[in-house]
């Protein structure tokens, strides 16, 4: 004889569930009423989580009212002042930027150029579409604005010199090899722009004429935050590759990079023929000898 039984009803006790779930008490309203001050401030909300009834409490930032309930609209920590419930978002309005440094640098939403002019106020919609400006993996050039108390850098890109990088490739060298120059934005006569970052990241890209850069008044967000490369002809591409290889050879020989040395090395390399040979040992040594011997 075979009998079928149903499964025991699932237990709703979350306390024994390990993993990435936030602790969630059974009776939300009671929780809010009782220990809202101390214990709940460490609790995180998720967007759409019902916090409490709107009859007893007022909704603040980060919440909205739905069916007589106060509902969180962001992930964050709950704060309460008397009857006012607010949710402070977890990571607000900033990007973390790898700056080849001990700590990640921080780029605030308020420190980038937003579409629609410099004087425009930040809106909540800007926060929601931060990924349309910069997203994961994007490369950008920025200036250090300030340092936080823990030594982390705060960056800004509120100039047309700064912003998203495209039309080229990245070369990474030890940071000590970058000398302080009058300008770290170089243009080589071979139609290549160089950005010598003080953190050792060097951006080698196609030259963009000054008057073709995205203008101040007609700030074109689509052009500034575009991911698409311009058309780059083969001569420029091989020039970019050649400059990248020169930088790599010089860095391998521990020679500090300045505009003068790069120019001289480029002229020397042009006479030497193929680009990939630069990475060979003897050619590299000849290049270094040619650049470092005084004339």
């Amino acid at each position: 004889m075979i009998t079928f039984t149903s499964f025991p009803p699932p237990s709703f006790d979350n306390s024994d569930v390990s993993g990435g779930h936030y602790r969630q008490d059974e009776d939300m309203d009671m929780d809010l009423e009782n220990d809202f001050g101390e214990g709940a401030s460490k609790r995180l909300t998720y967007p759409g989580e019902t916090l409490t009834s709107s009859q007893a409490f007022m909704r603040g930032h980060g919440t909205f009212v739905h069916d007589e309930d106060v509902v969180a609209s962001v992930a964050g920590t709950i704060e309460r002042v008397n009857k006012l419930i607010t949710v402070r978002p977890v990571q607000p309005r900033r990007w973390k930027v790898d700056a080849n440094s001990r700590q990640d640098a921080i780029l605030m939403l308020s420190s980038v150029n937003l579409p629609g002019g410099v004087q425009r106020r930040k809106l909540e919609s800007d926060e929601l579409q931060m990924r349309t400006f910069f997203e994961e993996g994007d490369l950008l050039v920025a200036e250090v604005q300030a340092f936080f108390a823990d030594g982390a850098m705060s960056l800004h890109t509120r100039s047309l010199k700064y912003g998203k990088l495209r039309n080229g490739q990245l070369v990474s060298v030890p940071p000590v090899l970058i000398r302080r120059l009058k300008s770290h934005f170089l243009t080589l006569p071979c139609g290549v722009d160089l950005i010598l970052g003080l953190n050792g990241y060097i951006w080698v890209s196609k030259h963009v004429k000054e008057n073709e850069q995205e203008g101040e008044e007609g700030f074109d967000a689509e052009a500034v935050y575009s991911n698409r490369n311009d058309n780059i002809d083969e001569a420029t591409r091989s020039a970019i590759s050649r400059v990248s290889n020169i930088i790599q050879v010089l860095a391998a020989h521990f020679i500090a990079l300045t505009d003068a040395i790069l120019l001289e090395a480029y002229e020397w390399a042009l006479e030497q023929g193929t680009i990939k040979d630069l990475l060979q040992q003897d050619v590299g040594e000849a290049l270094v000898a040619a650049v470092t011997t005084p004339r």
């Binding site: 993996g137 490369l139 780059i232």
Partner: peptide, 13 residues
Amino acid sequence: PISKSEKSYIQSS
């Protein structure tokens, strides 16, 4: 990690 513009630069080359 690779940015979209780097990716398209490599691919078009």
